[in-house]
Amino acid sequence: MDETGKELVLALYDYQEKSPREVTMKKGDILTLLNSTNKDSWKVEVKITVNGKTYERQGFVPAAYVKKL
């Protein structure tokens, strides 16, 4: 869990989004878990840094590609 009590997951593999509802992640990324009720895909939040500014983006990733921490 992070400092706000949200559950975290670790990306086990790289994943490139295939639709606007998904998010891209790299192996080793730590993501905030938002919903894990679907056995196939979990909703997560990723933090992306562009030019020194951090943005948050929500979307789905394959459940088999992440592990709860």
Rank of each mutant, 00 (worst) to 15 (best):
Y55A: 05
L34F: 03
V61A: 01
Y15Q: 01
V50A: 10
E17R: 15
L10A: 05
D2A: 14
R21V: 10
L10H: 03
D14E: 04
V46N: 04
Y65L: 14
Y55F: 13
Q58A: 10
E7D: 10
I30M: 05
S41M: 15
K6S: 10
A64C: 15
K68W: 07
D29E: 08
Q58K: 07
S36D: 15
G5P: 14
N51F: 07
A63N: 02
V23G: 02
V66W: 03
D40M: 11
G52D: 06
D14Y: 05
V46W: 06
E22Y: 06
G5D: 12
L8C: 15
R21F: 14
V9N: 00
V44C: 03
K43S: 05
M25K: 02
E17N: 06
Y65F: 13
V44H: 00
D2Y: 13
L34C: 06
D40R: 11
K27W: 04
V61N: 01
K6I: 12
L33G: 00
L34H: 02
D14S: 07
E17Y: 04
F60T: 04
T49W: 10
L33T: 01
K47Y: 10
E56T: 15
T24E: 02
F60G: 00
A63W: 03
A64D: 10
A64P: 06
T49P: 03
V66R: 02
T49G: 03
N38Q: 09
A11S: 05
K68L: 14
K47I: 12
Y13I: 10
K43A: 07
D14L: 06
K6T: 12
K27Q: 08
K43I: 14
E17L: 06
N38M: 09
N51W: 06
D40I: 12
F60K: 01
T49D: 08
V44I: 06
I48S: 06
P62Y: 06
V46R: 09
I30C: 07
V66N: 00
V46I: 15
Q58P: 02
P20E: 11
T37I: 08
N51T: 04
Y13C: 15
S41Q: 14
T32H: 08
D14M: 05
N51H: 09
S36C: 14
L8R: 11
P62F: 10
Q58I: 12
D29W: 14
T32V: 15
K47G: 04
E22M: 04
L69Y: 08
Q16Y: 14
T24N: 05
K39C: 12
P62C: 08
K53I: 15
S36A: 12
Y15W: 06
S19E: 09
T4D: 12
K27D: 02
S41E: 15
L8W: 14
K43R: 10
K68N: 05
M25I: 15
L34S: 01
E3V: 13
N51R: 08
S36V: 05
I30F: 05
G59T: 02
V9L: 11
